[in-house]
């Protein structure tokens, strides 16, 4: 019997491994961004890649996000597969015009003649004590832009698998990396990294019968923790990790809600105009007759992201999630 040597790895290391494997597997893959070369990125996700593959494959660009994404568009037009790093969520905004007007639309406007296989990696979300402009949850902007795929991992294995799938995709993918999970650990076999699943499937992280928590990215561990705590209250919560916001896996979400009859959507992003509204609407449209209570949302407040000393009040935590679960009209049961 062969023993599989499992080793601990962080999400950041899994992402590095995914980039390295993609660079090695396909000469058209190019990594580019601010400080991604010599330094290895401010979160060290591109650590060692410039050394291993050369600066033409892992390039320190001038400091200009629109320019980075705009030149990546041209590179993709010529058959390359750029993987762009935006240094932080809020610093990706200068690139929004390129993203919305060209990256998202090029395949469509050229009737499929000019697809753009670009991956835009964006560290996002809060919880790391970052000062202003370092903690935005910007997923709603990208979700609202047809033509983009939007994915976000919550586990070490998914970080690897989803990033490989994003780079392999012939469509542009906004790859949102939950900053506060960069250092989260899991054990894996470095000789045999987890299989690459196609983008677009949610996964049930914890099965339960009482209600479903629907979440993604940085809020997945929080929901799992809430589900453990809920046992004391007699609730058996299911947790669905969406992994992909676009395409949206209605099937997995609805199957779960039909089973449990109750749902709470949890995310850091602001509630108003945020992903939760869309998700709640989709559930209501599809599973109305299975619902025992309105779909509730636990989201960040509708305020600009707070300063670090106040962010814990903003972020959805276990208590706020359990309070929402408590409001799911359990009285009707008895």
């Amino acid at each position: 019997m062969t023993t599989v040597a499992l080793k601990p790895a962080t999400m950041a290391q899994a992402l590095t491994r995914a980039l390295r494997d993609a660079l090695a597997a396909d000469p058209s893959v190019h990594v580019m961004g601010e400080d991604v070369g010599t330094l290895g990125g401010v979160f060290r996700v591109t650590d060692g890649l410039a050394k291993e593959f050369g600066e033409d494959r892992c390039t320190d660009t001038p400091l200009a996000e629109a320019g980075i994404l705009g030149t990546a568009v041209g590179m993709a037009m010529y058959g390359l597969r750029p993987v762009v790093e935006m240094q932080f969520d809020a610093f990706a905004y200068p690139a929004f015009e390129q993203l919305a007007s060209h990256v998202a639309k090029m395949r469509n406007r050229t009737r499929g003649k000019m697809p753009l296989p670009i991956t835009v990696r964006i560290p996002y979300g809060g919880g790391i004590g970052g000062v202003e402009h370092h903690s935005d949850s910007s997923e709603a902007y990208y979700m609202a832009t047809p033509g983009l795929h939007v994915v976000t991992p919550a586990t070490v294995a998914d970080a690897y698998g989803l990033l490989r799938a994003a780079i392999a995709s012939d469509d542009p993918v906004v790859f949102l990396e939950p900053k506060r999970l960069y250092w989260s650990k899991d054990s894996w076999n470095p000789d045999d990294p987890p299989a690459v699943e196609p983008i677009g499937r949610a996964v049930v992280r914890r099965t339960g019968r009482s209600a479903t928590l629907i979440t993604y990215g940085p809020s997945v561990p929080v929901c799992l923790e809430a589900a453990e705590a809920a046992r004391a209250e007699g609730w058996d919560l299911e947790v669905v990790d969406l992994r992909s916001l676009v395409p949206f896996d209605d099937e997995t979400v609805c199957a779960s809600v039909r089973r449990t009859g109750r749902a709470v959507v949890v995310h850091e992003s602001n509630g108003f105009g945020g992903p939760g509204g869309e998700i709640a609407a989709r559930i209501t449209e599809r599973c109305f007759h299975h619902l025992e209570a309105p779909v509730l949302r636990v989201a960040g407040f509708d305020v600009p992201y707070p300063p670090p000393m106040l962010e814990r009040h903003h972020l959805p935590g276990v208590d706020r999630i359990l309070d929402a679960v408590a409001r799911l009209q359990w009285e009707a049961e008895s």
Partner: peptide, 16 residues
Amino acid sequence: TQLPHAVGLAHAARLK
């Protein structure tokens, strides 16, 4: 917005 595309394409061609 087309200008950075031209730069990227030219750069890619040179890389190839």
